[in-house]
Design a protein around this nucleic acid. Structure first.
Length: 440
RNA sequence: GGAGAGUUGGCAGAGCGGUAAUGCACCGGACUCGAAAUCCGGCGAACCAACUAAUGUUGGCGCGCAGGUUCAAAUCCUGUACUCUCCGCCA
């Protein structure tokens, strides 16, 4: 449904074609770690050559047409006969038209491949195709040693009367939930706390649109490949809008098609938004609890940086996310995702995984990525450097954090034997002094 | 939802079939002890391609976007997006 539109919308390149031309073997090698066959790169280079040959021919003819047309204009002014030139240009015009049609076809074929190639993973990323290849970077906190069998958060929440799955299923379906009373207040306390922390760390708070157009989804790299993972709204004008799967989309696209002043960088934005995901393909996984919902709140952080700063900024961003878990005193570890496991747009991704006692394992609660210039190239976000040149900037994004999962982690890690849940100290002021959630 | 007007370089703003005026800003120079003012000159958005070791040079493209007509389109035609004004409706 979307694919065709993009080919017309973006005559631009997604990975840097010049880089592919210059170092084809290196690109092939790097992309092989993401299961991209080398033949695609060969095909790409062939189309690129064809495109440039056609461009030269077409442009030469256009030059001729411009020159002769100027002459025709001159002759007309002098009331001379220009019929011969006009006939000649008619022929040239036909040739240009044919060449340009070929050129358009070639460009379409080229872009079809190019817009489906993922970002090139950074050299520091472990090679592998799934989570088992991830590398643990560091651990934080002490895993709680319960003297009783810890309950799952969905049971705790239900017994405390703060989460209602049944009515959510009735009203909406599976993978939806109602938060009630102190549950709703806990969720609100958590995200208010997160936003305040990020503000202190220099992020500007934003409330973005929750519905975005296809261009935006393309700009951040969700489209054209991942159309099945999102909810799309068809309005009466037949112009579809997508419910954001993450605030990253409206935040990064804020500067789409713009040239920023380099002295303003880095720019840091944060937003609390609901995120909507169809979770197609995850049937049977995490069917209970707050882990995998069709709608969930998430506080997102986005950075726009100069290329030379993006790796340092990725570390800062990750620490900003870790800061939340540390202040909440939730045990976690940081892993670097393997080349084949990171998102389409990412050159390197750190995942923060929080300890979930009932499941006796770490679960993802934040994903922090450096997208390098990949999104900037798609979304045309550039900056003007001190030397006056326009350059693509780098974009980064990270959850800080997934709010529902944070609530789940608090319920499980802070539970008591009697089924009550203690409120983490930093959240008490946000809960109007409430220190514990108990049954009735 | 209805009617009308608009969208041109960083900003302002002309052009309404013959290939983007002009002003402000900006850069260089002159004058000045220095600055302002004035004068002279220059650049004028992105993007693509060819040549070049690089700085660059040349060309293409470019007037919201996409098509069409024409030897030639900012200008004519069609579609479309957005902005503004008025009317209607509305949390």
């Amino acid at each position: 449904m979307w694919a065709k539109a993009f080919i017309f919308l973006w005559g631009d390149k997604m990975l840097d074609l010049k880089l592919i031309r210059k170092k084809p073997e290196w690109v092939k090698e790097r992309l092989a770690t993401r299961q991209i066959p080398g033949e695609e790169i060969d095909q790409l280079l062939q189309l690129d050559q064809q495109r440039r040959d056609l461009t030269v021919k077409s442009e030469n003819l256009k030059k001729e047409r411009n020159d002769v047309s100027a002459k025709i204009a001159q002759m007309k002014r002098n009331h001379e006969d220009a019929d011969a030139q006009i006939a000649q240009m008619k022929q040239v015009g036909q040739e240009i038209k044919e060449l340009d049609e070929k050129l358009a076809k070639t460009t379409d074929d080229l872009n079809y491949i190019l817009i489906r190639l993922p970002n090139i993973p950074d050299e520091s990323v472990p090679v592998g195709s799934d989570e088992s290849a991830a590398r643990e970077e560091r651990k934080w906190g002490t895993i709680p040693d319960f003297k009783f069998k810890p309950q799952a958060h969905w049971d705790l929440g239900e017994e405390l009367g703060i989460l209602d799955w049944q009515r959510a299923a009735k009203v909406s379906g599976s993978r939806f939930v109602y938060y009630l009373g102190l549950g709703a207040r806990l969720e609100r306390a958590v995200y208010n706390f997160m936003l305040d922390e990020h503000r202190k760390d220099g992020y500007t708070e934003v409330i973005p649109p929750y519905l975005v157009n296809a261009e935006s989804m393309f700009g951040t790299g969700q489209f054209p490949k991942f159309t099945e993972d999102v909810y799309t709204i068809i309005n009466t004008d037949e112009k579809p809008l997508t419910l954001i799967p993450t605030a990253e989309v409206p935040l990064v696209n804020f500067y789409r098609d713009e040239i920023l002043d380099g002295s303003q960088l880095p720019i840091n934005l944060t937003a609390l938004t609901p995120s909507f995901r169809s979770e197609a393909g995850s049937a049977g996984r995490d069917t209970r609890g707050l882990i995998r919902m069709h709608q969930f709140n998430k506080v997102e952080m986005v950075k726009f940086t100069k290329p030379e700063d993006s790796w340092d900024e990725l570390e800062k961003l990750t620490h900003n996310a870790e800061n939340i878990l540390q202040k909440l005193n939730l045990p976690y570890h940081v892993i670097t995702l393997a080349s084949g496991d990171a998102s389409f747009t990412s050159a390197k991704t750190y995942d923060l995984e929080v300890w979930m006692p009932a499941q006796n394992c770490y679960r993802e609660i934040s994903s922090c990525s450096n997208c390098t210039d990949f999104q900037a190239r798609r979304a045309h976000i550039r900056y003007r450097d001190e030397d006056g040149k326009t350059k693509l900037l780098h974009t980064l994004n990270g959850s800080g954090l997934a709010v529902g999962r944070t609530v789940a982690a608090i319920l499980e890690n802070y539970q008591n034997e009697d089924g009550s849940v203690t409120i983490p100290d930093v959240l008490v002021p946000y809960m109007d002094g409430v220190t514990k959630i108990t049954k009735d």
